[in-house]
Write a protein that binds this DNA or RNA. Structure first.
Lengths: 200, 200, 200, 200
DNA sequence: CCCTAATCGAGACGGTACGTCATGTCTTACA
DNA sequence: TGTAAGACATGACGTACCGTCTCGATTAGGG
């Protein structure tokens, strides 16, 4: 994300940074406006509507983000509650995986869940190669890494596959909508993953 | 699909069906044009471009399909190679599942695979509720049923979850693009599914 | 002007004219909206504002005219009061020229005069080569021809120069705004033109 | 023009002029850049492009001129070859007027002539009232005064009209582009003007 | 053998969002 | 205070598709 200054610290190779500094307030306003609009009426959210609500020129959005989807993703990533779950207790692996999934499901479902947003972002990544890279690197991969850390047995290849299977099961039901993302499903996925890792 | 005349035969309750009959050649031309264009340049495929290539008026498309996505899905479903795999031999369950997955992967990957199309259709289903129903009922569910038939042990709930896990693992890698859909991955998914079904 | 069907009669080389016919009401609404807006607030007249006032899509304007200026010119040409003055009596040449000029001045000056519009159109023609051709052929040259017909003595070259001098004197004061377009000025221009034509 | 320092020399009544002094080099660079760009590609000349070519901040331009048009006019006025023609010999009035016009035409036509620039400036004056004043006072009126001095017979009103007729004839052909600005035209305009002045 | 009705190719239509461009102002750090 | 750099709010532009509508022509039964 171009809006992420921490990733480009004032190293020796950087230009002296002349000119007017970026307006941080405008950046925050844009992200807040994008998130509020997208959650309220995703289909009706346009670059124009974000700009108007943020009290900002459209060009200021395009200067820092390549599309409204990048803005929405950025807004989503910046929220504290988007934090990845890491503390899952000290029980057996299956239990810890189930706990991870249950708390992940909770962020998606329900009237205030971000399921609709994530579905739309995943969808947009299918037709926008540039966004697909950001989406994968900034959202998908960090969550895969977090889950991978919970897996403490088995070969690496198996653990990778287990992670894909767990998240895949979650995304599949989220995207197709044919089944519930409930505790029972979480436990079944966790059981299957454990079975894979313990297979000889 | 409204384009499926067999489902509404000239029964006794139907209206006498006066007026000019539907042009079957036009229907085939539209499907062929849609498939060719979508495979060659999905982003540049519009209703107009399909109509021009098929030598057809735009209205003729909208008369029979609600959107270009329905046309593409219809074209995809009509192809022989889209047939669902059913014959997976008589080996152990894990082997049969792996075979099913391997042949499914083969339809998606490679330069002539329909992965890009399926990704786009899945993506569109996220923002078009009407299409989501058709997509699920005509494409997703039949394939789930086919896979479900391969599973001959375990409770129904577990078997449902196993199917979601298998297809979920496939779709997840297809949609995110971070890992290969290769034989090793197929075997790992199959192993995990078997583990779930055999868990007490 | 593409909006002038009489100039392209149904000759043998024309295509069969298939498809939906042009909406004449929309054409009239666009011209009326453009004229009203341009007269009321020329600077604030945009293609969007014309489209909104005419109850028309923006694309419908761009389909038939290359820019808002072409629309405004078309609207201006379509008005009866824009008719070129031809009847100037039977008096001596100087008197007839003066009468022509006086009535021409009357169309430009005053609160309801089209001076501001014509100034803007002449200005736009300086930076838009395509519009310059239409402006010259549809507006300027017809008026030159009308004035040329009033001149019944002298060589053709002299008469051409006399026309340029008369209209030039008018436009110069209109564009620079340093002097009045009054009767005295009309008479002086007429006198000068007569002097040129009678010079041996 | 606010950029004309000679009119406000550092006299005793002036303020002490605190702060950094104006960068004269920047002023010259801006004018040179504006003229070069405007002559090469008038339509593509923007305030930004002038600033970049002059190696100057955009604000430095806006500090001293109200718009790019004022810069271009200033640049044009500063050029020696823009000098107004005054020496036209001692022949008869018609000849002197013709000589004046011929040398005026020469500055406009030809590949290096400033006709395109003057057309654009005249055009811009039609929509920018502030610029219209500067344009008239700094460019148009001085040239009218110069020509007026050549006219040594007739009433003042007639001489004013004669000047408008001469320049009007020139501008009209320049702006409409339907006729040549050649020697024959110059002579005809001169003849007409003389005829006006000698009329009783 | 006409009549009524639905289909067809063609293309104009109202509408929405897009991404770009230029303007003129404002803000930073430096000189 | 002037300056280079460049971010900012503003607002118009022209384009791309969408899904609907309207032509005139065609093609079926049903009377």
């Amino acid at each position: 994300m171009p809006a992420d200054p921490p990733s480009s610290p004032p190293g020796p190779a950087n230009r002296p940074r002349t000119g007017r500094a970026r307006n941080e307030q405008a950046r925050r306003d844009i992200l807040a406006a994008a998130l509020a609009l997208a959650r309220h009426d995703l289909g009706g959210t346009t670059v124009d509507s974000i700009a108007v609500r943020a009290g900002v020129g459209k060009q200021t959005i395009y200067r820092w983000w390549p599309s409204k989807w990048a803005v929405i993703l950025d807004a989503l990533l910046g929220h504290a509650e988007r934090k990845v779950v890491t503390n899952t207790g000290t029980g057996p692996l299956t239990e810890r995986l189930a706990t991870f999934l249950v708390s992940s499901f909770a962020l998606l479902t329900g009237p205030d869940g971000d399921g609709p947003l994530l579905r739309a972002l995943m969808a947009h990544a299918q037709t926008d190669p540039g966004f697909a890279v950001v989406w994968r690197d900034e959202f998908i991969l960090p969550r895969r890494r977090a889950l991978l850390q919970l897996l403490d047995i088995g070969r690496l290849d198996d653990r990778e596959a287990a992670v894909d299977m767990l998240f895949g099961g979650m995304w599949y039901r989220l995207l197709v909508g044919h089944g519930q993302l409930d505790d029972a499903y979480a436990h079944r996925l966790a059981t299957a993953a454990t079975g894979l890792l313990k297979s000889k």
